[in-house]
């Protein structure tokens, strides 16, 4: 498959560039390179969460159990990327702000996101009947996702932020990036996204196969 080789080469090139070009943010210095990895992880976390919710809505509409499988795969991947984003963020916080955890608005938001995922998996573990599990977890994930806009708009007003407002780390695209930094950042974002969809595709197929296996054994 040509795109897999392309992904492999381009990601490798991106990694090399991310460490050999000048640091993206002069004031923070060398550690600001983590931004090429931290933000794409957070981005995938949100995408996966949104996909999980969309598949949940689809499930409630069609009652097709495959939609529930897809929602589960997206949620699992989203949880992993969320964890990665939290870890990379905490490392960066330690280096620049002096402590791993400060309850900064974004830290609070991602923590709540992790809790929602955790609760989602806990709920799935607590229901035995498959259709019931699918409906209940679908409702929960939709209901939980509704609070995310509140997280984005309300939490920053309640807790003082440490995320610099007009530096390169800001997600509102207000930053001043040099063309080089911009190229690396957006390639990283794109490559991470492609990688995520590849993982999602594999997960979906594994889930489908497991389901067919069970059906064959039943007959």
């Amino acid at each position: 498959m040509w795109w897999k080789s392309a992904l492999f080469i381009l990601m490798s090139v991106m990694i090399v560039y991310s460490f050999t070009t000048p640091a993206p943010q002069k004031m923070i210095g060398e550690s600001s390179r983590i931004f090429y990895y931290h933000i794409p992880q957070a981005w995938i976390c949100v995408i996966a969460f949104a996909m999980s919710m969309i598949y949940s809505i689809k499930y409630l509409k069609t009652k097709d159990i495959h939609e529930d499988d897809k929602a589960l795969v997206a949620a699992k991947l989203g949880f992993v990327f969320c964890l990665l984003a939290t870890l990379s963020g905490a490392t960066f916080a330690k280096v620049t702000w002096g402590s791993f955890w400060n309850w900064d608005p974004r830290e609070t938001s991602i923590f709540i996101l992790l809790l929602i995922y955790g609760a989602y998996f806990a709920l799935r573990g607590a229901v035995d009947v498959e259709e019931k599990r699918a409906s209940l977890s679908a409702v929960y994930s939709i209901f939980a996702f509704i609070t995310v806009p509140f997280l984005i708009f309300i939490v920053p007003r309640l807790v003082p932020s440490l995320h610099p407002e007009d530096s390169i780390i800001d997600e509102n695209m207000k930053f001043t990036m040099s063309p080089m930094v911009r190229t690396i950042f957006f390639s990283s974002l794109g490559l991470f996204t492609i990688f995520y969809f590849w993982l999602f595709n594999i997960g979906k197929r594994v889930q489908l196969m497991a389901r067919n296996q069970v059906e064959q054994e039943d007959f």
């Binding site: 990601m11 490798s12 990694i15 993982l199 594999i202």
Partner: peptide
Amino acid sequence: NYVALAVTLLVWVGLFFYVFGVDKKVKKLE
């Protein structure tokens, strides 16, 4: 920086080939 670069590349190459292998295995089973 070079140490970090080497580690990151190593992680990426390892991850890629692991996922690639899983993909292949799934295809065979399918």
